[in-house]
Design a binder for these strands. Structure first.
Lengths: 214, 214
DNA sequence: CTGGATCCTCAACGATACTG
DNA sequence: CAGTATCGTTGAGGATCCAG
């Protein structure tokens, strides 16, 4: 929005003015997992030049989507977080992500999975109807150096990056998790076949493909 | 997607690869109202250079979002239409448009209202719950040279550009329609004050702010 | 007259180096 | 670590021209 806009008095055009520039919505996606530092964002948005990230963050901040926050000790320094307006984009991003996921196919040459993208996948596949009232399950899922936490509670999921304090189960996996989420592989088969290693509640892991289903 | 992509195996990133480039979603927005010719798109997307429109249409076509169709007589020639994949973006665009509309404020200097943007406004403000089962109302709304039709039926609205064959009511209006849709001005007040001229069913016009509510 | 293609300019993006 | 600076490349913006 800083420099060029569509010049239309239209809600969609205004939304695109605010978050529609290149990398914009991916920044919002990554910040849905909680505040992130400049460097964390940069490593999650593979290939983004640092000056472009700087510009986007300034524009998103000016647009009221992102705000700078000071990290408490012991971390120190500044980070970027979504404002309430930014957080309210979540449902829309999930919808758009689901549309794109239907056209995803197999990974292309060179395509990577980042923490933010995997977190997004958990959000898009989460089925609120499958969660039981009063149920609380905390998953820590590890794919290589990508570590995300997903806490299911009150028919909702909260996805964060990094390890959880007290997960019910830690799941170490690779691409095979897609087969589990698609229902092509049962949780037990995945463990037996060595595609997945779990630490913690076997019951929670068996429940995983019910809660997160492609 | 043709040239550069985000290189992430992520539904959101794939969606942005397909429709996230500049002007992309506005093209989809305008095509939600039905097939359009190149020139119609160009005049609805104020300021888009013709070569950019050409490129976007090619990319959207390659991505399976848009397809070229041949117009039947007497129109002749080719037009661009959404594929099923493109149409399935409607709900998401409405959600994004609603997010942006909440941040729209008053029109800025130079901002225009096009047929596509006004049609989008009708989609975002439509309240399915307010429509009655079996009810069918057809509105033709005119704002200057912008003419759109909105047919409410079966708790859904179909919005098109151009005049309707058999509208229940033709509404000629200006910016004042926003006050009516916001509930700040009743339909009768708007007509009495001269801000709106209606031709046809007064009853249908009185129902308008129930069906389309900001 | 519509539907583009072509050319040029400039701003934004991309890559890398560098600094507080 | 968190940006800023610089520079080459790409794509957008704008005008004009060409073909059916």
């Amino acid at each position: 929005m800083a420099t060029r806009d569509y010049g239309q008095y239209c809600g969609l055009a205004r939304a695109l003015d605010l978050v529609g520039e290149r990398w914009g919505l991916l920044i919002v996606r990554d910040l849905l997992c909680g505040p992130q530092r400049f460097g964390e964002l940069q490593s999650g948005l593979v290939g983004i030049p640092s000056n472009v990230l700087t510009n986007r963050l300034k524009e998103l901040e000016a647009g009221g989507v992102v705000e700078r926050v000071l990290l408490a000790a012991p971390a120190r320094g500044t980070a970027y977080a979504l404002t309430e307006a930014g957080r309210s984009l979540e449902a829309t991003l999930v919808a758009l992500g689901r549309w794109g996921a239907a056209r995803l196919g197999d990974p292309r040459q060179g395509e990577v999975v980042t923490a933010g993208s995997f977190a997004m996948a958990l959000r898009t596949t989460f089925r609120p109807g499958a969660a039981r009232a009063g149920e609380r399950v905390a998953y820590e899922v590890r794919m290589g150096d990508v570590v995300v936490g997903a806490i299911v509670q009150d028919h909702a999921v909260t996805v964060t990056v990094g390890a959880l304090d007290d997960p019910d189960v830690v799941v170490e996996t690779g691409p095979a998790i897609k087969a589990v989420m698609a229902g092509d592989l049962t949780p037990d088969e995945a463990v037996a076949g060595g595609a997945v290693t779990i630490t913690g509640s076997k019951r929670a892991w068996r429940r995983f493909p019910d809660l997160f289903r492609i």
